[in-house]
Amino acid sequence: MLEHGGNLRAAKARYGGTDWIDLSTGINPHGYPAPAPSSDAWQRLPEPDPDLVRAACAYYGAPHLLPVAGTQAAIQALPRLRAELAGPARVTVAAPSYAEHAHHWRRLGHAMREVAYDSLDDAIGASDVVVVVNPNNPTGATVAPERLLGWAAQLAARGGWLVVDEAFGDTARALSVAGHVGRPGLVVLRSVGKFFGLAGLRLGFVGAEEPLLAALGDLLGPWTISGPAQEVAIAALRDHGWQRATQTRLARDGARMHALLADHGIDAHGTPLFHWWAAPRAEDFHQHMARRAIWVRLFPGAARGIRVGLPGNESAWLRIEQALREWNDT
């Protein structure tokens, strides 16, 4: 399996210590206060609750959605579904981005290539499937909705797909194309884990034409979303007051992180939930922070860089500031 953030047990095993600050994911550290599930949620088979789809469609502004066990489930299933429906495809994945996309398209035998975001226009004509993460993880790069919809139309004209991963789209709602998922060839992924801070719930949604959603649902099989997860998600998706307050808080904390990094000579960019920068000494910075029990995400190789999420309390902010000051002194 590929390496991801959130692997705090590995960090503790390697570096020791107990009082760790985990900045290795872009998950909201102040997650939704999940209500206790009903007894039925534990005791009954988790048949799909139509209220979950209605709540999600209202929140994302989408005409129809399929609940899935996190966007990861869809990322793994879509290459298989495409192969079953149309055979091997010419696939372009915007790079750098969430590595699971390229990994699974390649693994299923598709002709896969990775293309920089600023070269995507030229790649559309030579592709059957194009995958774009918007806003991008880890760099925060974005693509305008009208550009995405134009690409989707070009691909759909020859039976292709545009897959838009909007897992971090909650804090950039104007970028979303979820409201257009009735169009041919457009597939949109949304996550409940990031903005709502409910990564352990393992819940996301896929938006696409209804026949494609039906085929994906058949492939994934029954009972993919637990009863407790459905109840918690319905409450979170309908809690507009919490959503507004969280948008305000994340905007404030994201701006604070950007300013903190800039004050220590780091030119970072991203979203309110995470910041990323290219770092020639990325491995050294990663170890420097780990020795202070601060776990950041290291991106090695061609996309060498560092990504940091948000801390959950004021003492963590102060520890991060101190660690950055010490890094500048090295």
Rank of each mutant, 00 (worst) to 15 (best):
P37L: 12
G17T: 04
A55H: 05
Q43A: 14
D19K: 11
W42P: 09
G61D: 01
Y60A: 10
T25C: 12
R54K: 13
D51P: 00
P50L: 04
E47W: 07
D49W: 02
H30D: 11
D51C: 06
G26L: 02
T18M: 05
Y59T: 04
P63M: 11
D19H: 12
V53S: 15
S38I: 02
P46Q: 10
Q43P: 00
P50R: 06
G31S: 04
N28C: 09
G31Q: 07
Q43D: 09
L23N: 12
E47Y: 05
D19L: 08
G31D: 02
D40M: 06
V68A: 08
S38N: 02
A55V: 07
C57L: 03
L52K: 10
I21H: 12
G31W: 00
G70R: 03
L65M: 13
A55D: 03
A58E: 15
G70K: 09
P33H: 10
Y32N: 10
A55W: 07
V68R: 13
D22P: 03
S38G: 13
A34N: 00
R54T: 11
H64F: 08
G70A: 09
R44M: 10
D49I: 00
G70E: 12
T18S: 14
G61T: 09
A34C: 02
P48G: 07
W20V: 06
G17Q: 00
H30W: 15
P37R: 11
S24W: 02
T18Y: 01
I27V: 15
D19E: 15
A62C: 08
V53Y: 03
D40I: 01
S38R: 09
D49A: 11
S24L: 05
S39Y: 01
G61N: 08
P50G: 02
A58P: 01
L45H: 04
Y32S: 12
A55P: 05
L66Q: 00
P63Y: 14
A36C: 00
E47T: 11
P29K: 02
R54W: 00
G70F: 07
L66D: 01
I27C: 11
L66F: 02
D19M: 01
R44W: 03
A36H: 03
C57G: 06
G70L: 03
P50N: 06
Y59R: 15
P46C: 14
H64V: 08
P50K: 06
Y59E: 11
S38Q: 02
A56K: 04
Y60C: 06
S38D: 04
P35S: 10
L66T: 00
A34T: 05
L65G: 13
A41N: 07
S39A: 14
N28S: 13
D49V: 01
D40C: 07
L65P: 12
C57T: 14
P35E: 10
R44P: 00
V53P: 03
A41Y: 01
S24I: 00
Y60E: 12
A56C: 01
P33G: 10
P67R: 14
P35Q: 09
N28H: 09
A62V: 14
A69Q: 15
Y60W: 14
R44C: 12
L23E: 11
G61V: 07
W42K: 11
P50T: 05
Q43L: 15
Y59L: 05
G17H: 04
V53F: 05
D19P: 00
V53M: 10
